[in-house]
Write a protein that binds this DNA or RNA. Sequence first.
DNA 1: TATGAATGAGCGTTCATTCAT
DNA 2: GATGAATGAACGCTCATTCAT
Lengths: 211, 211, 211, 211
Amino acid sequence: MTGQLRADAKRNRDQILAAARELMVNQGAGVPMEEIARHAGVGVGTLYRRFPDRVALLRALSVHTIENMTELARTALRTEPDAWTGLSRFVRECVALRLGALRSIVDPELHTALRQSDELRSARTELLRIVEQMIEAAQRDGSMRTDVGVVDVAMLVSLHLKRPFDVPGTTPVDMDARLTQLMLDGLRPCAATPLPGSPTTLADVNWDADR
Amino acid sequence: MTGQLRADAKRNRDQILAAARELMVNQGAGVPMEEIARHAGVGVGTLYRRFPDRVALLRALSVHTIENMTELARTALRTEPDAWTGLSRFVRECVALRLGALRSIVDPELHTALRQSDELRSARTELLRIVEQMIEAAQRDGSMRTDVGVVDVAMLVSLHLKRPFDVPGTTPVDMDARLTQLMLDGLRPCAATPLPGSPTTLADVNWDADR
Amino acid sequence: MTGQLRADAKRNRDQILAAARELMVNQGAGVPMEEIARHAGVGVGTLYRRFPDRVALLRALSVHTIENMTELARTALRTEPDAWTGLSRFVRECVALRLGALRSIVDPELHTALRQSDELRSARTELLRIVEQMIEAAQRDGSMRTDVGVVDVAMLVSLHLKRPFDVPGTTPVDMDARLTQLMLDGLRPCAATPLPGSPTTLADVNWDADR
Amino acid sequence: MTGQLRADAKRNRDQILAAARELMVNQGAGVPMEEIARHAGVGVGTLYRRFPDRVALLRALSVHTIENMTELARTALRTEPDAWTGLSRFVRECVALRLGALRSIVDPELHTALRQSDELRSARTELLRIVEQMIEAAQRDGSMRTDVGVVDVAMLVSLHLKRPFDVPGTTPVDMDARLTQLMLDGLRPCAATPLPGSPTTLADVNWDADR
DNA sequence: TATGAATGAGCGTTCATTCAT
DNA sequence: GATGAATGAACGCTCATTCAT
């Protein structure tokens, strides 16, 4: 009985998240709440019942997204023959799906609000730990330069999540693939020019300063 | 008399552009027009007299910015010993100054509006031509991979114009330098993995499709 | 079976009324219906089943309150040695319990809606009749000025139902007692300054004009 | 030149305050801002330009009102033959004009916000000082009971600012006069029943606790 | 010509009420 | 009969743009 109700509610929640993801990734985090509701096929009231305000919605979306990414990372690590291939695949998938794009779209004020969330914090840490494993393995077997850490890679990927402009004469999907490959090549040991500073790893970061 | 007035007017215009640049780069293209006017030390009315609406302001700002970049590119080309060094310097300068950041901040709707401008179009072409010279020279002397074109590089740089998040435990300026270097290393011939598609050069692009 | 249900229903009804009274007296008649329901430990649906809208709830609440007051008046009349003492006690009790405060909290629009109720009308008449008895007796034995009627007293008391501001340095309960005493002293014959108009009694009032 | 503009602006400001006073006194402090604007003959934007939010409007209104009251008190003190007559006149005028009614209409939350204002605080103190002079003089010459202080009187008057219900068969203005007279008679020495606590004067009150 | 006042459309959010479960 | 999810109208407030001075 409650199960039924919950099913409906759950479905609504999911539709809202899906609509929000699509609209926010394409048009920025400022999309009118009403438009999100409309796309999800519900009234604004329903949206607000699930997510008390825009920040809450963004938070839920971010956690959801990060969990998707974690899943992708795990699969890549498990499935691919070596760490570097796994990492490359993971990065390509993130870019293709624009997973995580939200973090980069958010305006500074919202961004600050987001950082407060413990749930987000721990989801992020879990993800980064897995990516760090891939990186360390790749560095150990010599397929990746050793002067970069997870945080460097995360920042790099986050830059690539912005959808590039449409340039008439090119196809966006090709452009994406080319840019991503250029980024990956920059992580290889061969061309490595010494970097200023030192690799930024999970251990270096004091996330608590966020609080 | 008119000379006086024109001087004043010019000054107003410049102050407005400066204020707009600073505010928009830091807080996004959505900054209230009134705040821009206040920072520029003029009334809103004056702002609107110079730039009939937000898009016009953005357009002027973009042209101005591109002209700055062109200047930087020219100087780098003239001053540095070889093309690759010139290109690297130019890229680092653009990133450091966030020149061009506006294009990437702008929301899609504004972006479309911007593309309509002939003035912008020709300023951009002029800039890209110079960068293309650097690229071709660097490719000729073997210091740069040959499967990329100006447009690829431009897209790549534009991704790096987004200001990265503050990660507690790192300094933004270091982070910038590291990420930029990684991007540049990806453009070197040594690690080059074959790219899908073909290098996108000025000649390949049909800008007219924008109209 | 039905008995069970009715008992439950009755209990729900009472809980709702109690919650509504408490919240409305303290926070005004505008309290969200959902908050009332929550405080009563029921769902909104249940609240709306019992009371089709806010006005109906208010009406029930008012009737209930007036019945309480009637009870107090009866007891005071029966228990106290003389009419004036009885009246004073009744007034003090009403003020202390903020009985009737709802009438004064209600915004004009709701107020108009309330007046339509026959049930309310007759409960009120019953109460006023008893108070009138006390007044007439007190006037007869010389302990109360003779130029006032029930309606005057009722209006006066209703003014005193508004909770006074907290003034730092005073205790609300003391303040209440002082203000109430000042009001009662004004009803004594001794200081009586002639009043404009004539005493307003039950007989003078044409309640039907409300309809 | 600015004078002209200011004249217009000033006129708008005054119209807004007048509209706000009328609507708030009659319908509570919750009147839609848009309705206030409409009554004032301006757009909402204008209202918000003058008063950044509802609290600011209420604050301005309160200060304005208190200043009116101060003026009335001063005149009464100067003009009437003795202090008691002056006080009576002042009280009657306040009631007739519903001056100060706003303080009593305000919902608790707004009320708290209002107390923060230094401007309001000092206007109020100035008013209370003058009323205190009248009270002390009246007490000295034996025309007023000595167990009450300004704060008691202020609270009493504030209760009487609530507009009484329309009772069919009575005229509101008569009702006002009768109720006010009853209040004043309660302040006379003759019928005085000892009050609990002690007179609350300006000196007793620790307004700073508000901050 | 520069100013900043005025306008009103638009967005975020709340809440009374309805209705499917 | 009880529940609480869904709806949408309404209100507070902001900001782009216009226009009187």
